[in-house]
Design a protein around this nucleic acid. Structure first.
Lengths: 128, 128
DNA sequence: AGCACTATACGAAAAGTTTCGTAGTTAATA
DNA sequence: TATTAACTACGAAACTTTTCGTATAGTGCT
């Protein structure tokens, strides 16, 4: 079955998707407010981004109300997969093991997370 | 000691860096030939990229010979770190565990690699 | 010296991303 | 019913990235 072609979002687009994934369907106003917690960005800038993302099919919007409500139309997992695969290819020469070890080394992962990963490894080795 | 500021290379730049990391110092000709194994790209396009990368400080070149010899001036590990951290933030909300599990799930990692990862986990849990 | 070959330098077009200003529309309200 | 406030639409500037064409210059032959 042909998997829908997921376009690679730009960094700015990803910031917005991130918010939509976390918050669920949101207005431009809300998204812009959240963005502004981290950096200065004008309302119309955010609006424009979201309009473009709509054209690209990255988000959908409900226009019933005067304030349109936007929601992500690609899911977080699929997007993560696309970006991860890309990074794996372009920066890690396809070696997932290297990538994983870098990721673990760079971040201080909690004991709990380490256990989760270990369990996951077990599951894989038992053949899912 | 102040860590040198590593700029985030573009996708195309990364492809070239990749080649330089693998092959060591190389001429534009060689890099272009390798690129062309995967996709069509003109010689002067590759040349231009490498000239720009030189200006940006991503590569260095030795001009002693008529064919300049380029080498990566940022190392693979540092670059991987920068890109991975970025991805972790923008797509995985900072959760390394999620990233790792996605990476393991998506790629078919070899038994050998899985063992390497497991050993690495052990090392971390024992406190490096 | 003249020619063909191989390289680099430079400029610029084309496309994509980011950022806003301005204009116009709808809804509430004084 | 004017005014004001909250939104959307649109266009365009400023940058960055990607892609080449053309001009130039050094090398080695004939």
């Amino acid at each position: 079955m042909a998997k829908k072609q997921i376009p690679k979002p730009t960094d700015s687009e990803l910031e917005i998707l991130q918010i939509l994934w976390r918050n669920g369907p949101s207005t431009v106003k809300v998204v812009n407010e959240i963005l502004n917690e981290k950096k200065d960005v004008g309302y119309t800038t955010t609006l424009k981004f979201m309009q473009i993302m709509n054209e690209k099919g990255l988000v959908q919007r409900n226009e019933d109300e005067r304030s349109h409500i936007y929601s992500a139309s690609i899911n977080q997992n699929d997007t993560q997969k696309v970006l991860l695969d890309k990074l794996l290819e372009t920066a890690f020469s396809g070696s997932a093991a290297n990538l994983v070890m870098q990721a673990l080394g760079n971040s201080n992962t909690s004991k709990d997370d380490l256990k989760k990963i270990r369990d996951y490894l077990n599951k894989i080795e038992r053949g899912e």
